[in-house]
Nucleic acid binder design. Structure first.
Ligand SMILES: [Zn+2]
Ligand SMILES: [Zn+2]
Ligand SMILES: [Zn+2]
Ligand SMILES: [Zn+2]
Lengths: 153, 153
DNA sequence: TCTTCCATTGAGATTGAGTCTCAATATAGT
DNA sequence: ACTATATTGAGACTCAATCTCAATGGAAGA
């Protein structure tokens, strides 16, 4: 269980599992999906659990180091994290007309990525594949030019 | 040619192609590969071409809007851009340690995306595939735990 | 040419994420 | 209790990026 993994990392370094560190760990694992440090920090302030911003960032880094949590990417609103033992991985299509988001998963694409990483001697930790375009409802009536399938689409 | 494309966007909005905007356009297109706004800004200060930081950011956004330039991703050292006019499509690996960017292209992955789009009745227009991890130099000495290839990576 | 209108610019202020500093506090071992 | 070290948290700080707003500049008309 995650608390033990964290404890192990700390023990290796002669550090302690403090109230704050544990609270941050619990909070991080309370999220089903993605989260960002600021939200986590603010969310904790309501509960009995309190921790400073500094501790939140410090602890999230520790959780990354022992693989309990991963940085998913950087966006306008900061770094996105997710617990790495949790949701099944998937990628996204986003309709640029209506905003609909479609999740999908392709074993073949995942394997191909792994293969390419091996070939280029790159140690992939995570990835995002985002396809932008028009969903079923938004490309309904269309005369089919829209050329430029020259590269990608 | 890129200047005309840019000019067209500006005309559509009743705006002008000023010295600064043109200088920024030229500078952006002088890069073969990736660049970041701050470097571009600093690089311009030496030449006869000068523009403020504000103008650099403003103009890069415009260049994105007319597809001459693309945001590749966000790293510790800020947003990475690249010119997209005339370059062949490719995807990216980004080293989350040193920031190195590796370009790759997989016909198979591209085709699989098209197939999935057809299956889900989604009309894909473009996409980004970004793999984050550690490049050859940054994962050199490592004791190989790191299991969990269970879902993606 | 002179005038008016508005896009544009740029210096500097501002925001916001994330890190750093350091005095105060907590904990373990003696 | 005493010592040594780990930890915390408020706030200062950094850096990218955006915003503000007074000053500039070009275009069209009088
Ligand atoms: Zn995937
Ligand atoms: Zn999702
Ligand atoms: Zn691609
Ligand atoms: Zn590229």
């Amino acid at each position: 269980m995650e608390e033990n993994i964290f404890r192990k990392l700390l023990e290796e370094r002669g550090w302690r599992l403090t109230k704050q560190r544990n609270a941050i760990l619990q909070k991080a694992f309370s999220y089903k999906g993605h989260f960002d440090p600021e939200s986590l920090y603010l969310a904790m302030r309501g509960k009995g659990m309190k921790a400073s911003r500094a501790s939140v960032y410090r602890t999230l880094n520790l959780l990354c180091e022992c693989g309990l949590v991963e940085k998913v990417g950087k966006t306008e609103q900061g770094t996105i994290y997710e617990q790495s033992a949790g949701r099944k991985h998937h990628d996204h299509m986003i309709c640029i007309q209506c905003g609909e988001i479609i999740e999908f998963y392709s074993e073949k694409i995942e394997k191909l990525q792994e293969k390419i990483c091996r070939e280029l001697d790159f140690k992939g930790k995570n990835h995002t594949l985002e396809i932008r375009g028009y969903c079923r409802h938004c490309h309904a009536g269309e005369n089919g030019l829209e050329g430029d399938s020259s590269h990608g689409y």
